Amino acid sequence: MFRYIANRILLFIPVLLGVVVIIFTLMYVTPGDPAMAILGDNATPEQLAALHKSLGLDDPYIIRLGRFFFNLLQGDFGISYRSGRPVLEEILSRYPNTLILAFSSVAFGVVVGVAAGIISAVKQYSFLDKICTVVSLLGVSAPSFWIAMVLVVIFSVELRWLPATGNSSFKYWILPVFTLGLQASASIMRMTRSSMLEVIRQDYIRTSRAKGQTELLTIMRHAFRNALVPIITVIGIQICGFLAGAVLVETVFAIPGVGKFIVDSVNFKDYAVVQGAVFWIGLNCVLINLCVDVVYCFVDPRIKGQYSRTKAKKPRCLPDQEAAND
């Protein structure tokens, strides 16, 4: 198991290097002048040239890439062109909101999606299975901003039960968490159902039932445990997606998160913020994938067997064979 984890940690390094190069290259080839966005359209050529020199925008690609990478190693994500504050400080001030939204939504999706997926698989083609399938198709197909606006119209405008925007207390998080949680539960439910359907048809499930074990024990101990690997994969993908792609929900509900911060910085051409924030999200996604790989060790016994260091013992020679060898 330790060899498996060590291999995954070693793969962590080239992935991060690739993320750094891709992020910087995309921002380097993106049209637009940050100096113009900072100084405005009335700036003189001399002012633009002086700002280019101070920001290092006239340096070659390799020099700017090396400077960006060296600063990241020191924990320096740069300075925001718009606010003049360190980028990492700006990100960390908004990061808790994104974490609350992402993990709360995924937790809601896991509880609802796993339960609905197990019920749909065990009661295949039943009325409950059809209802769960229809709801999951709605959650997968409907855009998040459309679900968010429908919920705002119903629960905030018409019923006036919940606030439409803000994040100052628990009730402000109900609508955004439910919006993303519906999408997460739909994906998790579909994967749980398909994975469980493959497992419950196996011979060891029939053997467990023939031994007299209860249906609940058979489903949870044998079927669900062996169906966990693809479910864990989907959960990790959902967390990464919500950390990087909750922009629309954050915008609709006016939540000051990292995703909305990136969009606002792109509109302002604040390249330092975009580079630093996208790298921060990429770092989080790589760490989450690493955690998912580690969880595999405790769920899938085949990984332990593949990376075990036990060596096969050399067979001992029989006395006649030893005499023949002599």
Rank of each mutant, 00 (worst) to 15 (best):
V134L: 11
A164W: 00
V153Q: 11
Q124Y: 04
Q124G: 07
S168R: 07
S126V: 04
I154V: 12
V111H: 03
S126L: 07
V111F: 11
S156L: 02
V122M: 09
Q124P: 03
A142T: 15
L151S: 00
F155N: 01
L137G: 08
V153K: 05
L162Y: 06
V112I: 15
V135F: 09
A116Q: 05
P143M: 05
W146F: 14
A121Y: 02
V157W: 06
L159P: 08
V152D: 01
W161L: 15
N167I: 08
V152L: 01
L138Y: 12
C132A: 15
S156R: 02
C132K: 12
P163K: 04
M149T: 14
P163Q: 06
N167Y: 13
A115F: 15
E158A: 14
V140L: 09
G139K: 02
I118K: 00
L162C: 12
A142W: 06
T165L: 14
V111Q: 05
L151G: 00
L137A: 11
S136C: 04
G113A: 11
I147T: 12
S169A: 12
T165Y: 11
I131C: 08
I118L: 06
V112Y: 09
V153S: 09
K130I: 05
V150A: 14
W146D: 07
E158Q: 13
L162F: 11
T165C: 10
V114K: 00
S141E: 00
I119S: 12
L151Y: 04
S144N: 12
G139I: 01
I154N: 03
A148E: 03
V140F: 07
M149N: 13
T133E: 05
D129R: 00
F170L: 15
V152H: 06
A142N: 07
V134A: 08
R160D: 11
A115V: 14
C132W: 13
L159Y: 09
V140E: 04
I118A: 00
V140T: 09
F155T: 00
M149Y: 10
A121M: 07
V134W: 09
I154Q: 06
T133Y: 07
D129E: 07
S169D: 13
L162W: 05
L137T: 15
V135Y: 02
V150Q: 13
T165D: 13
W146M: 06
W146C: 10
G113W: 01
P143V: 01
I147P: 02
Y125W: 06
K123H: 09
L162A: 09
V111R: 06
A148V: 02
I131P: 03
V153C: 05
I147N: 03
V150K: 12
L128S: 07
L128K: 12
A121E: 00
F155D: 01
A115G: 11
T133N: 14
A142L: 15
L128N: 04
P163I: 06
G166M: 01
I118Y: 01
V152C: 02
M149K: 10
V114C: 03
I119Q: 09
S141T: 09
I119C: 13
L159F: 10
S126W: 08
